[in-house]
Every structure is written in structure tokens, then in C-alpha cells.
Design a protein around this nucleic acid. Structure first.
Lengths: 284, 284
DNA sequence: TAGAGAATAGAATATTTATTCCGTTCCGTC
DNA sequence: GACGGAACGGAATAAATATTCTATTCTCTA
């Protein structure tokens, strides 16, 4: 029997597939071993290539790839390929390590525990995401804009409000002048007409974008107030009003998003701005 | 002419493609803009998906994807897809690696960058910390207490305020009755005298503990309102008033703490409570 | 070294997937 | 409000890609 291995379980992720291949490579026939070697040496090619292109590269026939996949219990080459693709999607260093750490704790046993673990994992992912998507140069520009401002206007509504709330708290402690732009539209407009080019604004808004925030950012931009913004898409309506903007997508768990990464970003920005001010005006 | 743009050069890598899309997004027709937004928000899906699956996800026709690709000078969707795949092959460097790659003479850029790095790292540590320190049984008890309450009172001041603010937002969306206990002392007391044993409270306070929060937790406890609390020490004054309490120490960077882990915790608790309610009262 | 079973190559076929085409709708302009 | 051009939706078609099938080769054993 050299066909599907129905007795043994089929690997569901790259790591266990890799282990299985290594374990069995000794008793693999010539061409299948050739495929095994190529697959482990060039996993990206397997992920993106076609059966024909991979076969050429590995110097075998396309049908050999199918037999290889079936030898390890897969239905065909395509289902094997999915494993290699999933690997690229989850490619964050430390990803599976953290996943293992989480599944090791006792939360998984209880009903609410999986929710807890889910949000912790989502927060980790969000943090990995900002770490790779925020450009140091953009961050520096944002810091410079805000550090040079007389007053920093904080624009945020609804879901984003806690972020500006925390920044306000921190700016207060750090003796940085700020002004929150709240909800009451009448008052807000009175506040905003006092803003000018010497000030700056930090706006936060996530989909679905609160129209007040978008309007206020536009108003500020039209008054030549430089706007730095934090949002979740390059197509966010905040972008057009912004001198510098950051795209930050919070990972979700079961459709709900926390603000973990946003909070880390907000705090970093806040402290960096305060630090820059301290340096530029040490005598004050 | 709405076909291939032979006059302008065709983007050869993801960054320039992204730049081109952003540059032209304003004058893109409806469906093409829809595709543009989806593509930049979900680049991985474009890389791995088929024209049909992507079209469904972006809520357009497959032919629209082809037109989109051709609009930007590509021969068809497939050649556009190659750009998205190439992006995944060259692994995205993390923030710290890019920071290190910067020219070493720019001190300020390095400084702001390391602040950013520091807060992201601190957030990761905080998350690891709560994952191991929060007891599943305690979490379950907290969920039960809050899920059984008629009204959930949210007690938090100053630094903790954003946490209860976000929970309030989420409870509102989830149709869970809550009452924030704000700052104005006079009003708060009026609110609190309405609380009784059928309600419950969630209090958050970190060192130095705001005396109002501590007093209000005490008051609630004396009125037989079960209190769940989140704080940063077993010796916190909140502990004596609490039925269930959690110790959560946010890791700090340069003496400043963000709220990343607290946010993840708060969101997990909020969703778990709403989920439990939904199960217990499916008919409502 | 003959024979049996496994493995392989390559072409034939089936399937999936991208692209084209055309009737209809939308939108701006006169 | 009518016209013309651009954009769109959806089905038809073309292209690509994976899988199967069979004749042939290899390899081990008696």
C-alpha cells in the first residue's frame, strides 16, 4: 500500500507537516524524496507556484507532486498547497510560540476562557501589525509636528474616544498643552475657530468613521492646522485632511476589537512628543 | 480612453503600486475605488485568493477586478496579483529592524523610534503577564456576577477612565445596561444610592489609587452590591471591597505605562458578559 | 535472472479559474 | 430631458492548472 494514509492523521499546519516529512524522508522513494527536499527548501515556491512550475523547478513531473501530496494523506496537490499558504499568512516571528503559550494555560477549559485567550491573542497580533506597518520616518514627522505645536487638539469620538482620553491624561501629567474636542457640536466649533497654524491636531477615527471627527479634521486642515491622524485604512476620510497618517488595524476576536495596539501607539506618540519638547526647550 | 495606461509606467512593486493607487483614488469610479480600498486593506487576500473569491469578498464582479488591473496598466488580474505575491515573499521587516537600518547620525529619529519600540515591547510583556496571572476560575466568577446584574456600574477615574469609557461604549452596542460613575462627586452619590444587591459594579484603579474610586467601591460594597475590580496589587484598597479582583501590572517603558493589556482584559470581560447574558436569556 | 510489485513519466482529461464580450445602467453635458 | 460616453454586471468563452490513467521503468526478492 502506497496510497493515502488514512490510519495516521493528516498534518494541519506547516510545522507538523514539516515534522512528518522529516520523519519519513528516509523511506521515501527517489522522486518523492526529491519533492520533499525541494518543498522544505523552497516553501515559498510551493505556496505560490503552479504544479507545473514547481515540477519543473524540482525536476519531477506534475503527477509526482500529486502522488507526494497523497502519500501524506492529502487529497491532492492543491490541499497540500493550502498548508504552505497558511504558513505565509501567519508569518509573524513568535506567532505559534505565543499560541502554544496560550493554549497551555487553563483558560481554554472554561467557557469564558476562550474569549479571554482570544482577545489576548488578538492584542498580540495587533501589536505585531503596528510594529511592521508604522514607518519610523512617519512617526518622527508626527512627533515633530506635535512637539512644535502650541496647543494640541485631540479629536476622537465614540470608539476612539478612550484613546484621546488617555492621551489627554498623559499630556496633562507631562505639562503639554492640549484641548480635547468633545461631542457637543456647538462648543466644539467655538473651540476649533481658535486653532491656527501654530497649533496641531491629533485625530483618531476607525470605520465607521464618525462624521463629526471627519468634519472637524477637515475644518482644522482648512485652517492650516497640521493634522496627524490614526485610522484603519488608507481610504479613510481622515487621510485627505492629514499631514501624516498611520494605518492601524486592530485584530478582532469574534468580530469585536479591543484598543490594545492603539493604546500602545498613543502612549508612544505622547511620550515621544513630550520628550522632544523637553529637549528643544530645556530652559522652560 | 479607460484602458491601459501606456503613457505612464506600470508599478513593479507593491510600494509604488500602493502610491499610485492612493494618488489616483479620488478620480476612480465607484466600483474600482471599492476594489482599491479592499486591495489595500486586505493585501493578503489578493495574494492568495482567486478572482472569484476576492470579487465576492469585495462585493464586485470578477470582471471588475480585471478592469481594475487594466486601469493601472496591467494586462489582467493575474499580473496584478503577482505584485501582491512578491510582497509576501520578501518578508516584511519589523519596526525595530527598519529603525536599525536608518542612518545612524539622526539621533532624534532614533530616539522617537526607540520610544515606539519600547511601548510595543512593553505591551507584549503586559499581555504575556495577564495571560498567565489571571485565574480562569476567577474570570468565570467575575463574568457570572456581571452577567447576572441588572445594571453594571462602572467605576474609574483618571488613568483608568479610558477603560471604563471603552466598556461603556461596548456595553451600549451590546445592549447591556450600565451606568458610568463619573467625576462630579455630588452626582455620583445620587447615582450610587440607586444601586442594590441585584446590580453589580466593575471598578478599575491603579496606584496611586484615586480616593473617589476607593470610596465609591466601599460604598457599593456596603450596599451589598457585588464588586469586581481590576487593580495592580494585592494590597490595593479596592481589594477589601471586592467579591472578585484581578491583579494586572502593565509593563512600563521609561516609567510610563500604557493600557494595552487592561484594554484587552476589559474587552474580554465585556464580551464574555454579553455572551453569557445572551445564552441565559435567549428569548429576550 | 526472472518475476512481481512499486514507482515513474508523460499524455489525456477534468476541473478550476481568468478573461472577454455585450446588453444595460449610470452619469455628466448640452 | 435627451444624448453620448464611461462604467458595470453577468454569462459565455478561453486559458490555465490539477488530476488521472496507462504504458514503461525500476527495484527488490526468490
Amino acid at each position: 500500500m502506497a496510497e493515502t494514509e488514512n490510519s495516521i492523521e493528516i498534518p494541519q499546519d506547516f510545522d507538523s507537516l514539516k515534522a512528518t516529512i522529516l520523519e519519513r524522508k528516509a523511506q521515501l522513494p527517489k522522486r518523492l524524496r526529491q519533492v520533499a527536499a525541494y518543498a522544505l527548501d523552497h516553501p515559498d515556491e510551493i505556496a505560490f507556484g503552479t504544479a507545473a512550475s514547481i515540477a519543473t523547478a524540482a525536476d519531477v513531473q506534475p503527477s509526482t507532486l500529486v502522488r507526494f501530496a497523497q502519500h501524506f494523506g492529502f487529497e491532492g496537490f492543491s490541499s497540500l498547497q493550502l498548508i504552505f499558504r497558511a504558513r505565509l499568512r501567519e508569518r509573524t516571528p513568535g506567532y505559534d510560540e505565543r499560541l502554544r503559550a496560550l493554549s497551555g494555560n487553563d483558560h481554554s477549559k472554561l467557557e469564558s476562557g476562550s474569549i479571554f485567550n482570544g482577545f489576548v491573542a488578538a492584542a498580540h497580533r495587533s501589536l505585531d501589525n503596528i510594529a511592521s506597518s508604522v514607518e519610523p520616518e512617519a512617526f518622527e514627522r508626527a512627533v515633530n509636528i506635535l512637539a512644535g505645536a502650541e496647543t494640541i487638539y485631540l479629536v476622537a469620538k465614540r470608539r476612539s474616544y478612550p484613546i484621546s482620553g488617555y492621551m489627554a491624561y498623559a499630556f496633562g501629567k507631562l505639562k503639554v498643552r492640549y484641548q480635547m474636542v468633545g461631542t457637543a457640536a456647538g462648543i466644539d466649533d467655538d473651540i476649533l475657530v481658535m486653532a491656527g497654524p501654530k497649533d496641531a491636531a491629533f485625530a483618531v477615527s476607525f470605520s465607521p468613521y464618525a462624521s463629526e471627527s471627519v468634519d472637524q479634521a477637515k475644518l482644522l486642515a482648512s485652517r492650516k492646522v497640521p493634522v496627524v491622524s490614526l485610522t484603519d485604512s488608507a481610504f479613510s476620510p481622515l487621510v485627505e485632511s492629514s499631514k501624516v497618517w498611520f494605518e492601524l488595524v486592530e485584530a478582532d476576536h469574534a468580530g469585536f476589537r479591543s484598543l490594545s495596539a492603539s493604546m500602545a501607539f498613543a502612549m508612544a506618540l505622547t511620550v515621544a512628543v513630550a520628550e522632544k519638547r523637553r529637549r528643544n526647550a530645556p530652559g522652560v
